[in-house]
């Protein structure tokens, strides 16, 4: 009888202890502040982080815009008391860096992604790792090569002088796959139209260039130059043209034949891996680095590709989108 009488008290005690532990656990959850612009690409990446890390991690998002102030980031940072800050886009990374300085906080580690030249953006910043957003040429070429009947030995690229370091790094990666980058270097202060025209003239008259890689750089890649230089110069050139923008691979445009874009969800999953490395090291960056993006979405302009090159039909199942 006594036991029966005391049972509820015992249950309450255990329940209280359990709930207390649960509450404590919640307080101790691994909170991550994510600074990100609005948009499906960033939502995908955030989803990739959350789903890869699982329920034990609490992501607090702050949508950043051009108008977001450092003070707003500081406020969100203080409220979240995050173990790590993930900063997306150059705006998010800049706000992260500024907030850190204002808060005199170099202890909270950061992960930077989805911005232009993340490697340059976080150079000399302590306790931060990142993932570049630019797809390395080797990734593009390995994916393209697996579709083609003909080998790829040399790829032509037109680039600005300020991209020398990026081209050099890409050349190193490509060399591992026995592919050479033939770059035409243009001074940053050159006239874009004439420089692009000359560069394409030079590349397309060479018989040893197997592929042309179009870099996402507004200097050379804009509506005016596509119409006035790229399309006329590449008309009749019977080799693949690889682009990094899906709209440029539409068959009716007769420009790009293969597009490779970042897989934002997988990029988030890759960032989650960096978060876990930081956690394993005791919530600090043990190995400062900028990784390359691993995963891509491939779109093939089959009509365009068939008109210039042999395609291995049995490999089309490896392409995310085939446009005809």
């Amino acid at each position: 009888m006594d036991q029966v009488k005391h049972a509820p008290t015992w249950i309450v005690a255990v329940a209280t202890a359990f709930l207390g532990a649960a509450a404590f656990g919640q307080d101790e959850s691994k909170r991550i502040l994510v600074l990100h612009p609005a948009g499906p690409s960033f939502d995908d990446a955030k989803k990739g982080i959350q789903e890869t890390l699982g329920d034990g991690y609490d992501l607090k998002g702050l949508v950043v815009t051009k108008e977001t102030s450092v003070e707003e980031v500081q406020k969100a940072w203080k409220e979240a008391a995050p173990k790590v800050v993930v900063a997306m886009d150059n705006r998010g990374v800049a706000l992260f860096k500024d907030a850190r300085v204002k808060m005199s906080d170099s202890v909270t580690p950061g992960v930077a992604l989805m911005g232009v030249r993340i490697d340059a953006t976080i150079r000399d910043v302590q306790n931060v790792v990142g993932i570049n957003y630019e797809i390395p040429a080797v990734t593009t070429i390995v994916n393209l090569r697996s579709l083609l009947s003909n080998p790829i030995k040399k790829i032509g690229v037109v680039h600005r002088a300020s991209m020398d370091d990026m081209i050099r790094k890409n050349a190193e990666f490509c060399a591992q796959e026995n592919v050479e980058i033939v770059g035409i270097r243009v001074p940053d202060d050159a006239d874009a139209k004439s420089a692009l025209n000359d560069a394409l003239k030079e590349l397309t008259k060479r018989s040893d260039i197997d592929v042309l890689l179009v870099i996402n750089d507004n200097f050379f890649l804009n509506a005016k130059l596509v119409k006035e230089v790229w399309l006329p110069r590449l008309s009749g050139w019977k080799h693949p043209v690889v682009v990094g923008v899906e709209s440029l691979v539409k068959p009716e445009l007769k420009f790009g034949t293969f597009a490779v874009l970042p897989d934002n969800y997988a990029l988030g999953a890759q960032a989650a891996g960096l978060v876990q490395e930081i956690e394993d090291a005791g919530w600090k960056v043990e190995d400062p680095k900028v990784d390359q993006p691993l995963s891509v979405i491939k779109t093939l302009n089959l009509r365009g590709m068939k008109s210039c090159c042999g395609v291995q039909q049995d490999k089309l199942g490896e392409v995310d989108k085939v446009l005809e």
Binding site: T139, E177, A266, A269, Q270, E277, D280, Q292, L294, S295
Partner: peptide
């Protein structure tokens, strides 16, 4: 070992290419 987990089979090769 320390794991580098990817979401697709095709993403394994880049791990070697980039020394990750």
């Amino acid at each position: 070992p320390k794991l580098k987990i990817v979401t697709k089979v095709e993403d394994l090769l880049p791990l070697l290419t980039f020394g990750s």
